[in-house]
Design a binder for these strands. Structure first.
Length: 361
DNA sequence: AAATCGGGGAT
DNA sequence: ATCCCAGATTT
């Protein structure tokens, strides 16, 4: 990029975007603070998660863990409890681990240096760039899905944006656009443009402040086809059988191991049905292997279909009665029905917990 | 480069 | 149904 091109882009693109942002930015909770800790929490929560979904979790999290030190000293189970229902639970684990490292090695502060930041768990290219620019006003690009879409259209990038070369191209463009001493505003402005104007479907090109210089708008019949992205392969489907084992006013729950889907969360124990196996048999078998007890099926309670990113499941829940055996207390435990709300469950199991409290099973 | 990792909203 | 969302890590 020549100095002359840069100058032209500054006038025709950077300044209009900054002006547009000042007038049109949404009033979001993390925009009323300059506390790097709070900005960090918001950035992690917003990964692959919509703004509306994050807002209630954000305030609850900061209320419970108001500082790096409170987070670092907390138990991971308490962090997961606050996170429960938001998905991508490894984010909570990385937050906790990073807070511990910051407390131990960085004077309980978030580093303002790229290399130190990138060495922390959960700090990839985007999060490093967003924290450095938004919290510290340093000139690093924060390139998320919104920015990728916006830039690919403004500059008509028709190569596959999942590939490294295209990512590098976009990063170079943004890097060259960052205005002096306005990195914080600029990062947020680019993302806000992508989120509210240059949307994936039905972009608001007519009211876009970059309309005059947008190559996709001016040169293509349909700017919506950008960015180009390779398609993900289709989903697989599984059947899961899970048991709700009541014993008096208690119920049996198990903790999922780390490093698996929904890792570290509690659940009503169960697992995949095998071929040529009935759901009831699968339930009894899984209860035995996961908790150590033998149980009998009383009746089916309900089945829930659920979609994850790369596969979908149907979980068949059965009301069961305890027969014999002792629970393997390293993984499973009997808990009072009234105490179910003290444990971190995924959305599906939260539904079941509610049903049990309301007298189901 | 591709797979893994949740849940919800828009179309 | 399919894609997308303020992505990072592992394979």
């Amino acid at each position: 990029m020549t100095a002359d091109q840069k100058k032209r882009l500054k006038k025709g693109l950077v300044q209009p975007i900054l002006n547009w942002y000042r007038k049109n930015k949404r009033d979001l909770p993390w925009r009323s603070t300059r506390d790097p800790y709070k900005i960090w929490i918001s950035e992690i929560m917003l990964q692959q998660t919509q703004v509306e979904q994050v807002i209630p979790y954000y305030s609850r999290f900061l209320n419970k863990f108001p500082s790096i030190n409170t987070l670092a000293r907390s138990d991971i189970d308490d962090v997961l409890k606050v996170w429960a229902g938001m998905g991508y639970y490894r984010r909570a684990r990385y937050l906790h681990e990073a807070a511990i490292i910051m407390a131990e090695r960085h004077d309980s502060k978030i580093p303002s240096n790229y290399e130190l930041l990138a060495a922390l768990p959960g700090f990839g290219p985007y999060t490093c760039g967003s924290v450095l620019s938004i919290a510290y006003n340093l000139p690093y690009p924060a390139i998320d899905g919104n920015v990728t879409r916006l830039i690919s259209r403004l500059f008509k990038i028709e190569s596959d944006i999942t590939r490294t070369a295209a990512k590098r191209t976009i990063e170079n463009i943004v890097d060259n656009l960052i205005p002096m001493n306005k990195a914080s505003e600029f990062s947020q402005a680019l993302m806000e443009m992508g989120a509210t104007v240059c949307k994936s479907k039905k972009p608001k090109c007519q009211s876009c402040c970059c309309r005059k210089i947008c190559r996709a708008y001016n040169e293509m019949s349909n700017p919506e086809i950008l960015p180009i992205k390779t398609k993900k392969k289709r989903n697989v489907h599984f059947h899961i059988a899970a048991g709700i084992v009541r014993n008096g006013n208690t119920v049996l729950i198990s903790k999922r191991p780390e490093n698996v889907i929904l890792g570290g969360l509690w659940e009503f124990p169960g697992g995949k049905k095998e071929k040529k196996e009935s759901l009831g048999a699968a339930c009894v078998r899984e209860l035995e292997s996961k908790t150590g007890i033998s149980a009998k099926i009383v009746r089916p309670l309900m089945s829930i279909k659920h979609h994850y990113s790369h596969y979908s499941i149907t979980i068949h829940f059965f009301c069961c009665s305890y027969s014999s055996g002792r629970v393997d207390t390293s993984i499973s435990k009997w808990v009072k029905i009234d105490d179910l709300d003290k444990y971190a469950f995924s959305k599906v199991h939260q539904q079941i917990a509610l049903k049990i409290r309301d007298g189901g099973c």
